[in-house]
Design a protein around this nucleic acid. Structure first.
Lengths: 172, 172, 172, 172
DNA sequence: TATGAATGAGAGTTCATTCAT
DNA sequence: AATGAATGAACTCTCATTCAT
């Protein structure tokens, strides 16, 4: 599954071949079909598993509520950590989100996941007396998406620490 | 080329077939090869053309300098307009940016384009006496990327006007 | 289609490969899919076409009724001629009839075809005051099936003319 | 071997998989290769065994000679009983007989078996002063083949008792 | 300029066969 | 004796590319 994730993330669903994945995993291609019914099902399981992992990582030490500036900052850092740790997964996730013709089932799963976070942040901005908590939450969501995107594309050159500080200054 | 853009954006490079593109364009498969050497070259020309178009659109009524809050806001709106008008192009662009194995040549072209904008914004933030103009410009770049991404994935539900106001409030 | 018939008849549905058929037809395997959607559909069309051909051959100079010994004999000879002329088709037909898991759709088509003939012969035996026209017709049907089978398996050694005379003697 | 027979008869040689046979037999795939060298050899042994069984069944209470109408009738009934009892075997046998490319070795075995019976019947018809004992024996052989075939394809609807009577009336 | 029939490499998938356990 | 994970050749089917028309 590590192998599949890497290959899918680097080549896209159609560009990734079972042969490539099997080679990356160090097994024969026929064996792939002992574990996964098809290429499509492999993708589905990959996504479900990654989503699960992400969710459990985020919930690890948070109660689902943001009460203070400090918690906001911690949450943000956690998010960034998630992107960096599971870079391949998020790269794949992003690519798929942009292709309407792949894995519709997954789309809903992902949207639900994101919606949930949006609400946590909206609550935070409401508490902070934001002029427009909804818009601020959406913007913050976009910031996260953009951050994720940039970290995926050019992780080495991005001054992530400075940018995090800047985000905290502007949003927390 | 319109046809190719649409098909590439909806299916990805590997998922798009010459047949599909030709049908979308209303011509025969074989004729494609009169105009473009190969599928890969078609993609390259598509990207160059789109980049060109984007650049000329942005320069249309700007001098490459942002002197006031008003100009900053105008520039932002122009950017959003660009994303919405050429949604397919940016969707394709985003997908490709995430796949290191496709169109390396294009990567550099795109990076140069973005770098240029980064500098314009950095100059603006410097003038505004930002604590960290570089970080603020990077963050703003991420905001644009995130905005683009969100507009690509769910254009109908995004409260773009409110979010633009919020960005102006926070950055301009 | 000639090629497909030959290869299917000699190797069975599963044993026949698209490659073999294409080679027999003198074309590239990819081209097979320009004319037929799939191997299964190729088989279906083959069967429908063969059935059609057989039906039209038999109706050619008969009114669907057997009125005399002479007509009975003529009908029998015609049947045998059909088996010999379209040996590959009937060999394939026979093999498929024995495999419940292949081409269910075709089974019904074939059964209807045979039922029709059975009735013509039953009418003949009734007119001849057979003790049990139904049984005699069924037996005659089995004779035809057995004849077909033997002609398929060992056409060269079978004394078909003498056997036809014998059948006429016993049944007409 | 019962399992293999069932699966081969229902799917054909190429359509039958070792996995299916093993599952039907309730053992693991690998164990098949402890008992049989290969799929092909399994088929060969199956056929030899079935042939043996058939031969011993037919010889059971006959001396290899037909002396009277009664014995002829008994022999015929015995034959039909054989077809019905070992339906899967004869279905497989028939399918293979029609495919020149499978199990050549078996072809000869089968032909010898049939030839032997042909001679017994030819002797009977000679004794009965048939005009053409050879042709009558061949025809009778075809009747048996046709009977077998029809019993394989549609065993439930065939009025086998009436047809047997009719055969006795016409041939014995 | 324009077509689409034709090609064949390569994709996903299956399965006879092997072998460590 | 018994298992089923593992292999890879061979299968069906797709598609970028070519070319006669």
């Amino acid at each position: 599954m590590q192998a599949a994730l890497k290959v899918f993330a680097n080549h896209g669903f159609n560009g990734a071949t079972i042969n490539l994945i099997a080679k990356e995993a160090g097994i024969a291609k026929g064996l792939m079909y002992t574990y996964y019914e098809s290429k499509e099902q492999l993708l589905d399981e990959l996504l479900s598993f990654g989503m699960q992992k992400a969710a459990s990582f985020l919930y690890e030490d948070s109660t689902g509520k943001l009460e203070s500036k400090k918690e906001f900052a911690a949450s943000l850092r956690k998010m960034v950590q998630l992107f960096l740790q599971e870079a391949d997964f998020w790269r794949l996730y992003t690519m798929l989100a942009l292709q309407p013709n792949i894995s519709e089932k997954f789309h809903k799963e992902a949207m639900a996941f994101l919606q949930q976070y949006l609400e946590v942040y909206m609550a935070y901005f409401k508490k902070k007396k934001s002029v427009n908590p909804m818009a601020e939450a959406m913007l913050f969501g976009s910031v996260l998406d953009g951050l994720m995107f940039d970290l995926m594309v050019a992780p080495d050159e991005y001054p992530i620490e400075d940018v995090i500080e800047m985000i905290i200054k502007k949003f927390a």
